[in-house]
Design a binder for these strands. Structure first.
Length: 295
DNA sequence: AAATACAGCAACCGCAATCGA
DNA sequence: GTCGATTGCGGTTGCTGTATT
């Protein structure tokens, strides 16, 4: 039994595309437009699976693609976005015109992940590269922050099919994937495609993430005023609220801060990994590790 | 020069989301 | 509302070129 293959495999070509195949595909799509990938190969005279055609078009043949090396600016953008979004390559790619998710994923795996690894190692050569969790140490800063009104960045990912952190049975979200790299097929969750499994677990009230640009003003213990623009990811899941942002915005240090947003006051203890879960209904809010306090 | 190791990247695979009858 | 078909995404594989021994 098992699943039906996405396309007949017998007689279909695999592996690298030839210039001739590229030409056929390009000409067909230019004449007929994208879509109908299943029937496209037959109509275009290609001995390829529709999926393969789609991938080839999206990643290499589209005219709006930017070729060449990733620039330092793009490099920085990828790093920042990855801090907040994790391995959500298509969303990251959406912020880099002309770049594809596959390209960014490959670039991350072959360049940036190593770069981050070596940087972390350099910073704390005797310690694990996995960010430690726990209470702030004596290097923490205490700052007073005022968050200005948020402006929501219109983002196509809200319309896309991106999953957000799963919720546990008590509706408290599981910890965000630490570096979001592995997915074991041996410990699969029930298929969420649940007419094949009761479509959509409706005990979860999670919403699509919002990417927001926030302007913060800080006053440090030393009286220094700091202004900062950050991109943060806001995810709501039932009464739980998730927020994260690039730690580089805060010099990778622990912080305590009081905040004010739209007339609401609160307090936070934030670790350098720069994300937290908070409970909108509870006075004793905690993040995924029980470190967070906010009201 | 040959063998081996490594890095980079194109392509594949399976799962989940979405579409549409 | 249900369910099969289609599309999109992210993890992984494996080929190819280059560096090292």
């Amino acid at each position: 039994m098992g699943r039906t293959p996405c396309c007949e495999k017998e007689g279909l070509r695999r592996g690298r595309w030839t210039a001739e195949e590229d030409d056929k595909l390009k000409k067909y799509i230019e004449a007929n437009g994208e879509g109908s990938w299943r029937s496209l190969p037959k109509n275009a005279g290609l001995l390829r699976c529709g999926k393969s055609c789609r991938l080839r078009w999206i990643n290499y043949l589209r005219t709006d693609l930017k070729r060449g090396n990733i620039t330092p600016q793009e490099d920085e953008t990828i790093l920042k976005l990855h801090t907040t979004l994790g391995n959500r390559w298509s969303i990251i790619a959406g912020h880099l015109p002309g770049r594809t998710d596959n390209e960014i994923k490959n670039y991350w795996n072959s360049h940036l992940s190593k770069k981050i690894y070596s940087d972390t190692k350099k910073d704390s050569p005797q310690e694990s590269t996995i960010p430690k969790r726990g209470r702030p140490n004596n290097k923490q800063q205490t700052i007073i922050a005022k968050k200005n009104k948020k402006k929501t960045i219109p983002n196509e990912e809200s319309c896309q099919s991106n999953s957000i952190p799963e919720t546990t049975t008590n509706n408290k979200p599981k910890e965000q994937e630490e570096h979001a790299t592995t997915s074991s097929s041996s410990e699969k969750e029930p298929n969420r495609n649940d007419h094949n499994n009761k479509k959509n677990n409706n005990n979860s009230t999670t919403k699509d993430p919002k990417i927001e640009e926030e302007h913060w003003e800080f006053t440090t213990d030393d009286g220094e005023k700091v202004e900062n623009e950050v991109i943060s990811t806001i995810i709501e899941s039932g009464e739980w609220f998730y927020s994260s942002w690039p730690s580089s915005n805060f010099n990778n240090e622990w912080m305590n801060w009081d905040w004010e947003s739209d007339g609401v006051l609160g307090q936070n203890v934030q670790e350098p990994s720069s994300w937290f879960w908070a409970n909108n209904n509870d006075d004793n809010n905690t993040n995924g590790e029980g470190e967070e306090e906010c009201r």
